Simulated scan of single mutants.
Amino acid sequence: MRIGEVAAATGVSARSLRHYERLGLIASRREPNGYRDYDEDTVVRVRQIRGLLDSGIPTRVIERMLPCLDGGPDIHPDEATPELLAGLEHERASLDARIATLTRSRDALSDYIARVSVVRGPR
């Protein structure tokens, strides 16, 4: 797949795809004309990356997480330093806090909608 096809399939700009490639999050082969050629699996990978980024996880953490997302044997526990684990635990706690805030916001919005619907009647 060419970069434009991956961009269209994922909703991620070509610029972002090139950035992900520079960071080593995705890879391409170069055709003789210099164009990038991506595997079909790249679409899934880019969607995973976008989901993690949208969750607030930085690319430096995503890079470490990618082997886990593949389910492959490329996880190296000996690379998990105490600092890395502390950083990952911090990221998880941050996500938990955001999830709790979003849940409260959703519940408040649902409550408001339900109360307004009772007063105004169903639409």
Rank of each mutant, 00 (worst) to 15 (best):
I3R: 07
E5K: 07
E5L: 00
E5M: 03
V6N: 09
A9G: 11
T10D: 11
G11V: 06
S13L: 11
A14H: 02
L17W: 07
L17C: 10
Y20K: 08
R22N: 14
L23R: 13
G24Q: 08
A27V: 07
A27Q: 11
A27R: 13
R30D: 11
E31L: 15
E31Y: 05
P32G: 13
P32S: 12
P32D: 13
G34H: 02
G34C: 03
G34N: 09
Y35W: 01
R36S: 14
R36E: 15
D37F: 13
Y38G: 03
Y38A: 02
Y38Q: 04
D39R: 11
D39A: 12
D39K: 08
E40N: 05
D41P: 05
T42I: 10
V43C: 05
V43D: 04
V43Q: 08
R45K: 14
V46T: 06
R47I: 01
R47M: 07
Q48E: 11
Q48N: 10
L52R: 02
L52S: 06
L52W: 00
L53G: 04
L53D: 00
S55R: 01
G56Q: 02
I57G: 05
I57C: 05
P58E: 11
T59Q: 05
V61C: 07
M65S: 08
L66P: 02
P67T: 14
C68K: 12
L69S: 10
G71M: 11
G72S: 13
G72L: 09
P73H: 02
P73I: 00
P73T: 00
I75M: 15
I75A: 15
P77R: 11
D78N: 02
A80S: 03
T81V: 09
E83T: 15
E83Q: 15
E83D: 15
L84E: 06
A86D: 14
L88Q: 09
R92Y: 10
R92V: 11
S94D: 05
S94W: 00
S94A: 09
L95V: 14
D96C: 09
D96S: 13
T101K: 11
T101D: 13
L102P: 05
S105G: 09
R106S: 07
R106K: 10
D107P: 00
L109C: 07
L109R: 10
D111R: 08
D111E: 06
A114T: 02
A114P: 01
A114L: 01
R115T: 08
S117P: 08
V119T: 00
R120G: 04
P122L: 01
P122S: 10
